[in-house]
């Protein structure tokens, strides 16, 4: 058996396809991003080494507004953690406790997660339509005409207007993870608490939530890194506009690379997105660890 387990040819044959895919598409590109971030390059002429100029421009250029995209991503991350997750947690606990049509509700709430973000985006685009959209029509119907807006075209409302569908779509995802988490808590714990006279609120606070820590950690990581990576819905709804009001790092990156052929600065933004994702993944794991101790 040991000879079988150490069969060199087999090992190489088995691992090579994965390693090739992995290295060429995921690992090497990270280094290429870092490398290109020190160059000024439009993809046609020869790249010109400019040191840290891209990094300086990224943080000083008002016209590009990179700091604002970071701010927008952080707002989205904050909303995800403090609005989306609590709603999901509440739903998960209520559903897992057992209500009529429990399975049906779980299945229903999860449906938006499965639908393509482009479809979701186009749907909300239609709902936000200033003339014919459902939202403005509803406001007119109930006599709140003065609240009607060109939701996605107005710099003041564009950002919240793109955040609503993003939060809406993924509530079901977090709910499902937390629901599975609640279901995996041994029933005896709840029974014991009930015998001791605990009410549902106390059970939720003292038993369910502490036992959900690992799932909550995963959800928090997903919510935050997901916000830093957010692209699809914003790209479909506003493309980052109007006047960059709803721009996030990834839409700015795509605009720089494919809209303006500024490969160097696009790579610099990519480096930042990668860095932030790793940074927050590690940070959240640390936070949850210290809390458990």
């Amino acid at each position: 058996m040991n000879r079988v387990r150490r069969n060199k040819t087999a090992i190489i044959l088995f691992i090579i396809p994965t390693l090739i895919l992995f290295c060429t598409i995921i690992i090497v590109p990270i280094f290429m991003d870092v490398y290109y971030s020190f160059f000024k390059w439009n993809g046609m002429t020869a790249p010109e080494f400019i040191g840290a100029d891209n990094y300086i421009e990224l943080f000083s250029s008002k016209a590009m507004g990179f700091p604002r995209t970071i701010k927008n991503a952080f707002i989205l991350a904050g909303l995800s953690v403090f609005i989306q997750l609590p709603i999901s947690l509440f739903m998960a606990i209520v559903l897992a406790r057992g209500v009529k049509w429990e399975k049906f509700f779980v299945a229903l709430f999860f449906t938006p997660v499965l639908i393509s973000t482009v479809v979701i985006g186009q749907l909300w685009l239609k709902m936000y339509n200033p003339q014919y959209g459902i939202i403005n029509s509803f406001l007119r119907l109930v006599g709140l005409d003065n609240l009607c807006r060109t939701w996605l075209g107005d710099g003041r409302t564009a950002l919240p207007a793109v955040f609503v569908p993003i939060l809406w779509q993924y509530i079901g995802y977090h709910m499902l993870l937390l629901y599975a988490g609640v279901k995996s808590i041994p029933e005896e714990l709840n029974e014991a608490a009930k015998i001791d006279g605990a009410n549902s609120w106390q059970i939720a606070r003292l038993i369910t939530i502490p036992n959900l820590k690992p799932t909550l950690q995963v959800c928090t990581i997903f919510a935050i890194t997901g916000s830093l990576k957010a692209f699809d819905l914003i790209y479909v709804l506003t493309g980052g506009g109007p006047a960059h009001a709803s721009e996030v790092p990834s839409t700015l990156m795509v605009d720089m690379i494919f809209g303006r052929s500024r490969y160097g600065i696009g790579s610099t933004i990519a480096v930042f997105i990668i860095f932030l994702c790793f940074f927050f993944a590690v940070l959240i794991k640390k936070v949850f660890k210290t809390e458990v101790d």
Binding site: F22, P29, I30, Y36, G43, K229, M253, I257
Partner: peptide, 18 residues
Amino acid sequence: IMLGLTVPIHAAILPVFI
């Protein structure tokens, strides 16, 4: 490979495109 879980797809877009 576990590292790959955290790397966002954004990282690859320009290098793969080139």
